[in-house]
């Protein structure tokens, strides 16, 4: 039995190239972007699990005589939040366009706009939860309220981390300009920020709209 059989696509040994020309270029931007996409995959599984829990905890048993989804989640308010969040995303997109044109000041300006609008969104999420709690609909009231608060809060924590990250990137762009390291971080931040809007689409549909169907 020859060991060579089954080598698959083995090439002709006499002509084979045995060593790489030089270390092949590792493109850090695309490697790190892939790394971040992979991370986002696991992050979205967090939301998948939360939506799974939401699905189970919206039965009447879990509402436990407390407020119903229709009473808790207001779709109109949520739509306003949607507008705010998407506007922040748009501003971040414009910042990425400034990045592509190598205009660090515009990058910073649009990112600052995006962050300010983002803070507004976070404030809206906060007042919504605080308002509910003030009316006695606390997360301790029922299984349904537990998951409602948690889902919104986890989204809010993501937003807060995104805002912190924007602050750091403002400082880094100001300090070192558009180096490869800064650029890949901006690209990652873009993915992160846009992803929050994407998740929000599901939150809006399956929590707010679905609640009052």
């Amino acid at each position: 039995m020859s060991t060579t059989s089954g080598h698959g696509q083995g090439s002709d040994p006499s002509k084979a190239v045995l060593w790489a020309e030089s270390d092949h270029e590792h493109d850090i931007i695309s490697t790190r972007l892939l790394g971040f996409w992979l991370y986002m995959l696991s992050d979205s599984l967090i939301f998948a699990a939360l939506f799974t829990a939401y699905e189970v905890l919206t039965y009447n048993t879990s509402i436990a005589g407390g407020p119903t989804p229709a009473e808790v989640a207001s779709p109109i308010r949520a739509y306003i939040e949607t507008i705010v969040l998407l506007t922040s995303v748009l501003a971040f997109g414009l910042s990425m366009i400034a990045l592509k044109r190598d205009r660090p000041r515009m990058v910073m300006a649009w990112m600052a706009v995006s962050a300010l609008i983002g803070i507004g969104f976070l404030g809206m999420e906060w007042t919504e939860l605080a308002g509910l709690a003030a009316r006695g609909s606390t997360p301790q009231r029922s299984g349904y309220l537990s998951i409602f608060f948690t889902l919104i809060a986890v989204h809010g924590i993501h937003i807060a981390i995104g805002l912190l990250w924007m602050g750091v990137m403002l400082a880094q762009v100001a300090r070192s300009g558009l180096t490869a390291l800064v650029v890949y971080r901006m690209a990652n931040l873009k993915i992160f920020w846009l992803y929050q809007a994407l998740i929000w689409t599901f939150v809006f549909t399956f929590v707010y709209l679905r609640g009052s169907v």
């Binding site: 695309s30 558009l178 650029v183 890949y184």
Partner: peptide, 8 residues
């Protein structure tokens, strides 16, 4: 130039 990267 990093901003000329295809992903940017």
């Amino acid at each position: 130039k990093p901003w000329e990267h295809p992903e940017i």
